[in-house]
Design a protein around this nucleic acid. Structure first.
Lengths: 137, 137
DNA sequence: CTAACTCCTTTCATAAATAAAGTAAAACGG
DNA sequence: CCGTTTTACTTTATTTATGAAAGGAGTTAG
């Protein structure tokens, strides 16, 4: 399905998705059109889901990075899911997980005051345990 | 620092980082060169850290998505950090966190057999609790 | 053996990026 | 308050990349 050239292309686009097809082609020893065709195939097959940017969240004003373990009280998760949908500006990921907790909610916040307000609201729906990301090593 | 146009540009590039500067310019009511200058400034200031792609990890052969809570036994974390550096192909993120655990290790694996082998090695360095991501809602 | 398919290259028309020059408005200093 | 500088933009022109089309080599199936 995926050969070494495809892997190389994916690796290179992960590092810089705005590279030109011509330049990417030089790295994989193909012409521009051949490379563009490879990339189009990777898009069509769903291997490449999209093109995006890495944003510095601190410079965007989000200085607090939190991981919140969610323990749902009731069997109906919908109120919780509706709540975090409304709070999308703070939510990075909401993973449903096996293990001790039900969900692992990854969030970004501008300040501890906002964290406080968020958690106060959150506690209407679920129990939680809070972890703060200190560093990404 | 960042005006509404910058926010719009970041938002648009997050959705599609391969958009042309001309087309992006039309969305924010600027010419191509003016838009390119804005983007260059966002890069220089570090708000935009890079351009990347979203990859379907299942189609890349990584069907298991795990979150591993790490509890270091010893005060010296270096053996653990060296270990995960060697296992980079499986590691998505390694967050140092406050709260109950010391690190939260996010990984991808091709199979449960590989998870098993990874955890067996991991247990030489730290204690852990394993969560498996069932869904990303 | 041949037809169909895949994957590539080459060529060429079109479109975008980039560099340079010029303009207008805002900010700054005397 | 006025002249200067800076900033942010547009316009123009050149360079460069994209994308479509045609064609060729290697592979596979009938």
């Amino acid at each position: 399905m995926l050969d070494n050239t495809d892997i190389f292309i994916i690796d290179e686009l992960s590092r810089n998705s705005r590279i030109t097809m011509k330049e990417l082609g030089e790295k994989v020893h193909l012409t521009g059109p051949a490379t563009a065709a490879r990339v189009a195939k990777l898009e069509d097959s769903g291997v490449i889901e999209g093109y995006t940017i890495k944003v510095n969240q601190v410079k965007m004003g989000y200085s607090v990075h939190a991981i919140i373990h969610i323990f749902t009280k009731s069997t109906n998760h919908q109120p919780y899911l509706s709540f975090i949908k409304k709070q999308a500006q703070y939510v990075i990921n909401n993973y449903k997980v096996s293990g001790e907790s039900c969900y692992m909610l990854e969030c970004k916040f501008p300040s501890n005051e906002i964290v406080d307000a968020f958690l106060t609201d959150l506690s209407n729906y679920v129990s939680y345990k809070l972890s703060i990301v200190i560093n990404k090593e």
